[in-house]
Write a protein that binds this DNA or RNA. Structure first.
Lengths: 223, 223
DNA sequence: AATTTTCCATAGTGATCGATACGAAACCTG
DNA sequence: CAGGTTTCGTATCGATCACTATGGAAAATT
């Protein structure tokens, strides 16, 4: 907590920390970690380099704080959807529809910062790429946890791998993030989400699937 | 065709062009366009800077040629699946299963170069990011064309938007690309693909859906 | 007011970025 | 062989990268 407000004397900061962090977050969101130069940050944040470094240590720390702020301010829909007192199917539906909206907000960069931030990276930025992967994996784990709860409550079949299904849902969200970046509209993403939902096992109490149905796979002949 | 083999005199090239291009392709595939420095390329290709620039003009041209080579050598599964004389459902199945395998080949970078190459980019590299988006859009268009063919042949319902469904399929593939980069195994991706297939409308001749079913969306209650 | 503490602004650090100048070497045609 | 052409290896180029040294200005403490 070195960043707290304890006034220990000295000249007060002449700019707003959160406002500067927001500007940095949006820039990282748009261009990714490595492609965002300090010159761009300087202009977007309206600060001089020493101001940035005094407040945020270095570029990597700034990015990590931007990640935290993104997590807090931009993707509340996810935690909300996964913790809402609704059925499992409805929770996943809210999650995907929420993603459709969050990934295509007017005035915001398209897609998800966790995906756009650093999918590929130079060897020097491997730590950042790993950090982002950790965020993505945490999201997937949160989905899996919600599915496990649904399975325990009878919303989902017993013979279902929550990890597999979570990987599908997280994968669809990642794909939506790219489609958003490629110009997909909110409606486009909503339809995509709706389509993806059709792959979920039909809701209803624990109808153990018959024969040798593998995982939760669907209605299409398997060839 | 400046790169052809017409021997017009002069000192012969001391290295193999395709081999060098392959090395560059794999490096771009792993680290993306901007994060791949000329020093890295130099080492991976086993060449000096003048050799690289004489053969490939500049970094951007080198990347574009690497893209073409990737298209020719690494993703034949897609064209194959979409042009095979099989049902539409089977074609999409082959496409997704093929992607599962292509995105997780041992000894190759995970995911798809079209996605990893430059999801986010600096302003200077916007042209590259646009080029990659064009490749992704072309893939989506190819899927849409195959779906349209299937619709015309009665494989798919009449009241179905091929663009919407193509966007879903392409989105799933993009998502698989990211999951592959996050360490998903071939089996993981195959299961994901199989799950995604369950969202497709049941195959069979043109059973025009009843009531007000929107697009092709599925079996789950819509809230 | 004196002291301390922190921040601000200017200017510039070494390192790395993509890309080249130069001249010698190696091939073709005559 | 001479003349022309292309690639070779060596040694860089200026620009930009993330980052900071320095010194004075401003506000809180004493």
């Amino acid at each position: 907590m070195e960043n707290s407000n304890k006034a220990r004397g000295g000249r007060p900061r002449a700019f707003d920390l959160e406002q500067a962090l927001d500007a940095a977050m949006h820039l990282f969101w748009e261009h990714g970690y490595e492609a965002t130069s300090l010159a761009m940050l300087r202009e977007a944040m309206g600060l001089t380099p020493p101001q940035i470094y005094n407040a945020f240590t270095d570029k990597e720390t700034l990015f990590r704080k931007a990640l935290m702020r993104y997590h807090e301010t931009e993707i509340g829909f996810a935690l909300e959807a996964l913790s809402a007192p609704v059925s499992t199917g409805e929770a996943i539906r809210c999650l995907l529809i929420g993603a459709a909206e969050a990934y295509s907000r007017p005035g915001k960069p398209g897609g998800c910062l966790f995906v756009s931030g650093a999918l590929a990276a130079s060897p020097q930025a491997q730590a950042i790429a790993d950090e982002l992967r950790t965020y993505r994996k945490a999201s997937e784990a949160a989905i899996a946890a919600r599915l496990a709860k649904g399975k325990a409550e009878g919303d989902l079949p017993d013979n279902l791998s929550v990890e597999d299904l979570a990987r599908y849902v997280a994968g669809v969200m990642n794909g939506m993030s790219i489609q958003a970046r490629d110009g997909a509209s909110v409606e486009d993403l909503r339809v995509l989400a709706q389509t993806a939902l059709a792959a979920l096992p039909a809701e209803g109490q624990n109808r153990g699937a018959s024969s040798k149905e593998r995982s939760h796979a669907g209605t299409l002949p398997r060839g």
